[in-house]
């Protein structure tokens, strides 16, 4: 216990040092948008029975970068009415709404399948603020993914998930460069799935899924993605 406290205070000290010696120029550009605690489908539980939850598959949650409108897709009628258009850019799907996919009509098995969406995604191993330009079309074509979820260790996900404690740990310094549903370039950082964006979660029953993420859409059609924050 004492040892642990010592380690924590050492960590705090180090972090403090880092801050004071940081003389890099501040990044410049337009501001990003931070979405905190976007409530996804908190009514579903497909595992052990839980109070206030139904045992059924999770509803998908769509989100528009432009209008910030989110929508739970609960039924076939919802799917028909709300999915086959470019009014949304990403969807949070499957278990705990943790598989995040783009809106692309050609991506079978994703909510946008069969619609007009042109979304695409590329995983970039850089912190969000260091991603200043979208990669080439060729990169999207060759290295693109439909979405990101669990990272089994192969680098193709946004969170690690240990089956021993069933807790999602977001991968740090990994950014997702996107084409939105209408073909604009954007960058996205997926930050947390737990309510309140806690840095560390040890409680399996911490309220989830509440999504915290940050993004920026380049509206002028260029590939520039530098932002001030």
């Amino acid at each position: 216990m004492k040892l642990r406290i010592l380690i924590i205070s050492a960590g705090v000290l180090l972090a403090a040092c880092g801050k004071s010696s940081n003389d890099k120029p501040a990044p410049t550009g337009p501001a990003s948008t931070l979405i905190s605690d976007l409530q996804a489908d908190t009514g579903a539980s497909v595992g052990e029975p839980e109070e206030g939850k139904e045992q059924r598959p999770f509803y998908s949650l769509t989100f528009s970068f432009t209008t910030q409108r989110s929508r739970l897709i609960k039924s076939k009628a919802d799917s028909i009415q709300y999915l086959k258009n470019t009014d949304w850019d990403i969807a949070f799907t499957q278990e705990y709404n943790s598989y995040v996919v783009v809106n692309n009509g050609a991506f079978t098995g994703t909510p946008g399948a069969g619609g007009p969406g042109k979304g695409a995604m590329v995983i970039v191993e850089k912190p969000y603020d260091q991603v200043t330009e979208a990669p080439s079309d060729e990169t999207f074509e060759n290295n693109g993914v439909h979405g990101v979820g669990w990272d089994s260790g192969n680098g193709y996900g946004w969170f690690f998930y240990s089956l021993s404690n069933h807790i999602c740990v977001p991968v740090k310094n990994r950014t997702f460069v996107l084409r939105t549903a209408s073909g604009k370039y954007a960058k996205l950082a997926l930050l947390n799935i737990y309510k309140g964006n806690p840095p560390v979660v040890t409680d399996l029953f911490w309220p989830a899924p509440y999504l915290t993420f940050k993004y920026f859409v380049q509206t002028d059609g260029s590939r520039r993605l530098n932002t001030s924050n």
């Binding site: 497909v46 595992g47 278990e95 994703t110 993914v145 439909h146 979405g147 990101v148 996900g157």
Partner: peptide
């Protein structure tokens, strides 16, 4: 050069095996 593994398990890749995480095929 990546792995081929669990099919579409919280990811977008085709694989060789289906992982029924929650036993949803046998409620």
């Amino acid at each position: 050069t990546r792995d081929i593994g669990l099919d579409h398990f919280l990811g977008g890749f085709d694989g060789w095996g289906y992982y029924d995480f929650y036993g949803s095929l046998f409620p």
